[in-house]
Computed example of a mutant assay.
Amino acid sequence: MEDKFRCNCPITSAIDVIGDKWSLVIIKQMLTEEKKTFKDFMESEEAIATNILSSRLKMLEEFKLIIKGKLPENKKTNIYTLTEKGIALTPIIVELLIWSDNNLREFHSDLYAGEQLEMVKSDKEKFTKHIIENYKKNNGLQHAI
């Protein structure tokens, strides 16, 4: 996997893994929108192309940010679940939410401004913990909290 990295800088190396246009979007969808299957991701408003989605899911799996399994009721359908490494990106996603609200609203007047944003602004740590606990509970990962 060494050849996947441009240099030995920790920040650049992290960007090599999650700095593309789609990886954090996929992780955000898993954390906050309960997306689990290829079809779930395809039906999202972000409109990712199938070939890009497929390659990003494989890459996220390769770096152990997600794991691929099968739906119990449908062995043909793959289901994707975040690992602890993937879940550990939650604070970064929350920080991006805050940064976007503070810095992009003037350029994007339709940016979300609802109740969740107010929760984040009032208590970022509590919101982050809530997202993680909710994801783990909904995916049978309570023991990992």
Rank of each mutant, 00 (worst) to 15 (best):
M1R: 12
E2S: 13
E2L: 11
D3E: 12
D3G: 06
N8D: 14
T12I: 11
A14Y: 05
I15E: 01
D16M: 04
V17K: 04
G19Q: 08
D20L: 03
K21I: 04
K21W: 09
S23N: 06
S23T: 03
L24V: 04
V25D: 14
I26P: 02
Q29V: 01
E33I: 02
E34T: 09
F38D: 05
D40H: 14
F41S: 12
M42S: 15
E43I: 04
E43P: 00
E46P: 02
A47V: 11
A47P: 01
A47K: 14
A49W: 06
A49Q: 15
N51I: 09
I52L: 07
R56K: 15
R56E: 11
L57K: 12
E62L: 13
E62V: 00
I66H: 10
K70F: 14
P72Y: 13
K75A: 08
K76R: 15
K76F: 04
T77F: 06
T77E: 15
N78D: 15
E84F: 00
E84K: 12
I87E: 10
I87A: 02
A88Y: 00
L89G: 00
P91H: 02
P91V: 02
I92K: 07
I93P: 02
E95Y: 14
L96P: 02
L97F: 07
S100H: 00
S100L: 05
S100I: 10
L104F: 14
R105S: 14
E106G: 07
E106F: 07
H108D: 15
H108T: 09
L111Q: 13
L111A: 15
L111P: 13
Y112F: 15
Y112S: 13
G114P: 14
G114K: 01
G114I: 06
Q116S: 06
E118V: 10
M119I: 06
V120N: 10
V120Q: 11
S122G: 07
S122C: 12
E125G: 01
E125I: 13
K126F: 08
K129I: 03
H130C: 02
I131E: 07
E133Q: 06
Y135N: 08
Y135E: 01
K136Y: 05
N139M: 05
N139Q: 15
G140S: 04
Q142H: 03
